[in-house]
Design a protein around this nucleic acid. Structure first.
Lengths: 334, 334
DNA sequence: CTGTTAGCGCGTTCAG
DNA sequence: CTGAACGCGCTAACAG
């Protein structure tokens, strides 16, 4: 493996000059540059990034911490991150925590070991205090998840408004008794979606029956189980709003299993718009998060943080979209 | 950020000693070690991996090259890789090519720049010759995909046998006219599956009608389109075997759309066993690749390659499983 | 425009 | 068991 000094010798110049053409510096004559370029080609020279990184004290790598790589929701976010990372010569290290809090922290600490220049958190099981403290010291951006009132850069949608929009839609279709399957309520975005739901009920003058609000864990089975609970109520809802698509899919299964039809007997709405939402029958009406955009934006902000171009960053909320498909049908009769 | 010399000074020892306790060397008195450990804790010392990597001329990072991170098939493979990578202190860099051949090559070249110690190829659009040549020079393992007759480590299932098993199953259910939706035939595993299909037909004395074999591109829409072609045949098949689950899902949609029922009128079988296979109705009968195991095994072999413990590695074939669900029903009547 | 030189922080000889 | 000193390959001052 040829190194810089080999190139320098072959080209009859100093290592500094080789380094300069590598960096694309203007202070090299065309003639010299070509000599060097030829020598590099002859020797099939590739710069040793290990050495460069040490010298520049950067890794040109960022780590994106996600709770579970199997979850299709995250792939688009990662793609967005990757898109701008690549443009700027950064590599993306995968920080799949498998829902392990300690692993999450390990990845964040990689920055202190200089194994990464920055981190994007797409999960945040670690204590908010620790994260906020860490954010003071290293370039850190949160995406999809956020911390209430924190002073660090966060890119999400407005989960309250989004959930409220679903209720608007359902109310417009004539639904007056709507069941809600919340996500785990220790997660802030779950609470936000619940809040948006309640807000919507209130605004449309719909009844607020606490037995219509149940809590799942974002999994298909939990959606199924909680939907069954709702449907077995003495006065079951005519629509079920699940806090994510997986639970909505479980809910659809439950409805069908009980001999009812979606959307004729029970409308179902999800949240997130994962690929499966279009595969299930009927195709799911849901809220589409701009996942790719969130990733892009998060990475752009991280880049600014790394380059110390310290613009003040706070909570950035990107617009979501309500995707109307078949799972809540037309206007309710009667 | 404290460095080694700071720890050394505080502990009243030399940097060499600090380095030794860091490496867990036995040649340090318990007393000294404790002094050093305490100093490290006091200073919140974290070794600078950039420096260590340069010194040891390794990055402790491997890159896994995948064609598209959005494809759910790959997440389990990655999880398997990650599982053993983590055990051995390696980081996993995501090499998402977005189906771009040049990007594939860029990631492989990272090894020459010492930005990665090895590479696992879960895609191989680049020319086989280039890959084989590269494999001579750097630690490289292929997973899921492979190169015919190559001398490099490859971990896959036996696609021929697997496809044949599907035909066995279908034949046992009484199907005699089976349609086959191949993957893109420039990909070797697509050809293998086709070969297994033909093999199965022959073994069971089923008719080989070339109009029953069509080619898709592994996408849902292509599965839909090709299934329509099959079903519009003068003598349509009673079963459709798609070369992956996405195409099978498309096929199921096509069958339903034409007013037919799965599996009563047309049985459908997929390949891969992605999560969606259980969500669609009816749940898909399919071949389950041991994705996690493939990833694990590939990473284990890569580790051996990196550590130069050069055992001879060739094509390793892991056992697949036929998962019988609802999409091909019971024995065909008549 | 080009060359010389000094580290980046660590691991690893070699002495003692 | 411990310390001194060198160098991994490169970039960035500084000098010319």
């Amino acid at each position: 493996m040829a190194k810089m000094i080999d190139v320098a010798r072959l080209a009859g110049v100093s290592v500094a000059t080789v380094s300069r053409v590598l960096a694309g510096s203007a202070h090299v004559s065309r003639e010299t540059r070509e000599k060097v370029l030829r020598a590099m080609a002859d020797l099939d020279y590739k710069p040793n990034l290990l050495a460069r990184n040490l010298r520049k004290m950067e890794s040109k790598t960022i780590v994106v911490v996600i709770p579970d790589i199997s979850n299709p929701f995250f792939s688009d976010v990662i793609r967005g991150i990757q898109h701008v990372a690549k443009e700027h010569g950064y590599h993306v290290l995968l920080g799949d925590t498998q829902n392990d809090v300690d692993a999450e922290w390990d990845f964040i600490e990689m920055i202190k070991e200089r194994a990464a220049d920055g981190v994007i958190l797409v999960t945040a099981r670690t204590s908010p205090e620790k994260i906020m403290e860490m954010a003071q010291e290293v370039p850190l951006v949160m995406a999809c998840e956020y911390i209430q009132g924190a002073e660090l850069p966060m890119v999400t949608i407005d989960n309250v408004i989004s959930a409220k929009r679903v209720v608007d839609h359902l109310a417009a279709l004539g639904h007056r008794r709507i069941g809600f399957i919340a996500g785990p309520l220790h997660v802030i975005i779950s609470r936000d979606r619940l809040q948006g739901f309640v807000l919507g009920l209130r605004e449309h003058g719909l009844e607020q029956d606490s037995s219509l609000i149940v809590e799942g864990d974002f999994s298909i089975p939990s959606g199924y189980d909680q939907a069954v609970r709702l449907l077995q109520l003495p006065e079951p809802p005519t629509a079920i709003f699940a806090s994510n698509d997986e639970m909505a899919i479980g809910a659809v299964k439950a409805v069908k299993q009980m001999g009812l039809k979606v959307p004729q007997d029970v409308a179902v709405v999800g949240f997130d718009d994962i690929p499966m939402a279009t595969v299930i029958e009927p195709a799911l009406t849901t809220i589409c998060q701009p996942k790719f955009e969130i990733g892009k934006k998060a990475m752009e902000i991280l880049l600014q943080l790394i380059q110390q171009s310290n613009r003040s960053h706070g909570h950035l909320k990107l617009p979501e979209k309500l995707i109307v498909r078949d799972s809540c049908g037309g206007r309710l009769k009667g």
